[in-house]
Simulated assay, not measured.
Amino acid sequence: MSGEGQHARHVAIIMDGNGRWAKRKHLPRAMGHRKGVEAVRELVRSLRDTSIECLTLYAFSSENWKRPEDEVDDLMNLMRKFIKSDLPEFIANDVKLHILGDWQALAPDIVEMLEDALEQTSKGSRTLAVALNYGSQAEIVQAARKAAAAGEITVESLAANLFSAPLPPLDLLIRTSGEVRLSNFLLWQAAYAEMIFTDVLWPDFTPDHLKQALEDFANRERRFGGR
């Protein structure tokens, strides 16, 4: 498929660099996370001006529990505030929330808030998918178990049991902050996705950076293993 003018329907972002952003500005890590949430907010608001049908964000990995307890607590509190403050805007802007990962294992009040948010946004036409307590290898193992229990394991049956099953195929994966690795994120889904690694730290990532990434994607030639 020629890349000329193609549109990315599903974009995923590994939001990296909050801690480094704070360190460079001699601020506590918590301030980096807060600024990172502001970047999420601006990006979600800009979606209506793009071709994107689904934006998937890596918010909290299953490995993030290894971080210091006060940092994890701060991240969880930020999540609570974000859901409370932004849910009405999601509804108003026709944004549907989807969650990837073992999110039911989070604190009971967060689980309740997320269940409410999923229900209230279920009619949205554009999707914000959030990876919470997520690890791609565990997702693939779980999907394989479910596929095996139902019958034969095939590419199709495994894909149908992934957290991302209702979402469009992944077109573009972006990672901020200069790191060049997937960090156990969407390993199966990224099989033929285009990738962009940028040195921009996540709190500094703007809708203009996303627009530039979409233009870059539009000019790439995707062969999907063909010639």
Rank of each mutant, 00 (worst) to 15 (best):
F82A: 09
E71V: 03
I110R: 05
Q104A: 13
M31G: 04
E71L: 02
H33K: 00
S164E: 12
M1C: 12
G32E: 00
A131E: 03
L55M: 12
I91N: 05
V155S: 15
A191P: 09
R227C: 14
Q212D: 09
A144G: 15
G226S: 15
K25Q: 10
R222M: 06
P28H: 10
L43V: 09
E69Y: 04
R20M: 09
L97Y: 00
L173D: 03
V72K: 02
D74F: 14
A144N: 12
S51L: 06
E152M: 14
G32R: 01
W188P: 01
L128I: 13
N161Q: 14
A160Q: 08
T50S: 12
A150K: 14
L167E: 03
E179N: 08
A39W: 00
R20D: 13
L97K: 04
L106E: 05
K81G: 13
T127P: 01
L170Y: 08
V200L: 05
D49L: 14
T154Q: 09
K35P: 02
Q104P: 13
L132P: 07
E112S: 14
Q189V: 04
D70K: 14
M1A: 13
H26S: 15
R227A: 15
E53V: 03
A144L: 13
I13V: 06
I83W: 01
M195Y: 03
K81Q: 12
M31H: 05
E179L: 01
Q104F: 12
Q189P: 13
E4W: 11
R145E: 15
I110L: 14
V141G: 10
A129E: 04
R223W: 00
H209M: 08
Q137D: 06
R24F: 05
G135Y: 09
L187S: 04
A149P: 13
L78D: 09
D199W: 03
